[in-house]
Amino acid sequence: MLLDARGVTKLFGGFRAVAGADLAVADGEIVGLIGPNGAGKSTFFRCLAGDLVPSAGRVVFDGDDLTRASPEAHARAGIGRTFQVPATFADMTVLENVMVGAFLHHPGAREARARAREVLDLTGLAPLAGQRAGALGTPGRKRLEIARALATAPRLLLLDECLAGLTPVELRDAIDLVRKIHRLGVTLVIVEHVMEVIVTLAQRVLVFNEGHVIATGAPREVVADPAVIEAYLGRGYRERTDPAP
């Protein structure tokens, strides 16, 4: 397993945001984490990215225990991530933003710049290279976050709602980009609450509700799971669609 998270629990005071969640991701997979708002998927994601230290459980990546490691140690180990609210470096240009990521494995400025340009070509951001990141719109910033993380040459990329709030055309472009990254051999874990997106992208999904994983499997099976429908739409909906015999 590339990523093996076991029994991950996160308490905020007395509130159990994540209660013993397990996730094992094989090299080359695309895994989706879905669930209604407040289900704990983002907290779980932040435990995987090194933002939060789990209250209990272990996170092992490629044989190394990263449970208590710093965010920068996660990057060095080969885990890239994006932020739910894009956190691009507003006063730096698009190229400079990506260079910061490229510096991780290319300490010289010239090599980092060359690597960053390759990533900009790949992600379609090359025409915007000289623009201030702060001048980009939301779709551009989300794309830049992906590019910046990609420049660190991650083996696993964690995407946090990078597709939310896009128009249908932007969404199609973003899905194409995610597929392209996957073809490069990058394993992906995608948090999303837009169900349609996950269904087209992921090979396997985990459904979170109230801090627990309530279902796991192929997207088509999972969306038909009564427990999932109930978590998303409430009990009344299930009773209406599932009439008594």
Binding site: A49, D51, S70, P71, E72, H74, A75, R76, G80, R81, F83, A87, T88, F89, A90, D91, M92, E96, V100, G101, F103, L104, R148, A149, A151, T152
Partner: peptide, 14 residues
């Protein structure tokens, strides 16, 4: 400059 612009994002890039 990256630390100034966003420490959490900078750390996520190593």
């Amino acid at each position: 400059r990256a630390v100034k612009a966003g420490e959490a994002a900078a750390r996520s890039l190593g």
